[in-house]
Write a protein that binds this DNA or RNA. Structure first.
Lengths: 167, 167
DNA sequence: GGAATTGGGACAGTCATATTGACATATCTT
DNA sequence: AAGATATGTCAATATGACTGTCCCAATTCC
């Protein structure tokens, strides 16, 4: 097991956190933490007859109103055929609306309707409940560490895409 | 020189770390971090003709050799019909073996064959590469925060199940 | 000892979400 | 005018989940 070891200087504690058990602990917590979070909105989605794929699309459209279909595709990392069905359904239900791009008229800019905003807000409230509770329980300094490890998991090439979600 | 150097300006969680933007940041990083991690072994799985569901089963059987089918079901949080197909395939390929429980002879205790261990080790190496790099980049104190927030996401009732994976 | 419960397995049908491949149209770039 | 890009659509397929039902063997309860 060859792992990158940061540097020789810091005493004792620093090398230990790359042991297999520590790695497995991180994998498992990431798995169960992620699963627990996304399970929150399931009841609401079921009641609407929507799935998690619809939620992901709603989430990013809410986060970046006016994003183009191609940007959403890159965020979701699925094929346009897969997204097509989801987007069509969301539009048929009046949750999402399209507008033709102003700079590039080939683009279709997506945004939520008032109805879509209401649903997304309700879904978000479920995620928020989990996340806010976890933040509060762990404390602010833990949150910084949480973010930094997760950023480290994302391939550098993908980070600009993720960071662009922040205003 | 003493500590792994984080990226230029690691965005710190602000004092108002419960604001909507901070919550959304956590949701997004958790989403992309999780997705990035589990994408690592995909090429290997494809080459074997296996899917992520097989990997999850292999992972937990490797982690807890001799666990019963019911325990695996609780970890994966799926139905036994869903697990049934996965487990059958893994056994047909000679990656997983069953033994009758010693205390309770109704139980089927699962473990990896030598072949299964070899495959799981290769799959784990992929996960490890991501996670070790993220740990090294973020630094040890970040890892503690990472764990603590993730633990906070897991409903208290489920935590014993997760913690029991640690020896 | 008999009844109820539990652990595991199996069959059948369905659904949600993803895939590949091919093709079409409008628009932008050069 | 030619080529690239953004989007949409049709068709077929795969994966991984679901519900519902039935079954057997072993354990536990009374």
């Amino acid at each position: 097991m060859t792992v990158p070891i940061p540097a020789p200087s810091p005493p004792a504690a620093s090398a230990l956190f790359l042991r297999e058990d520590e790695i497995r602990r991180g994998i498992e917590l990431l798995y169960f933490g992620y699963a627990s979070m996304i399970r929150g909105p399931d009841a609401l989605l079921d009641a609407e007859g929507l799935g998690r794929a619809h939620h992901r699309a709603l989430y990013f459209i809410a986060r970046r109103p006016g994003l183009a279909v191609g940007e959403l595709l890159r965020l979701l990392a699925i094929t346009k055929q897969s997204l097509g069905r989801v987007l069509t359904e969301l539009q048929e239900r009046g949750l999402v609306a399209q507008a033709i791009g102003t700079q590039d008229r080939r683009q279709r800019l997506l945004r939520l309707t008032a109805q879509g905003e209401a649903l997304e807000a309700a879904l978000f409230a479920q995620l928020q409940r989990s996340m806010a509770a976890a933040y509060a329980e762990a404390g602010q300094s833990a949150v910084t560490g949480f973010w930094n490890v997760l950023i480290g998991l994302i391939p550098p090439a993908d980070r600009p895409l993720v960071n662009a979600l922040q205003k």
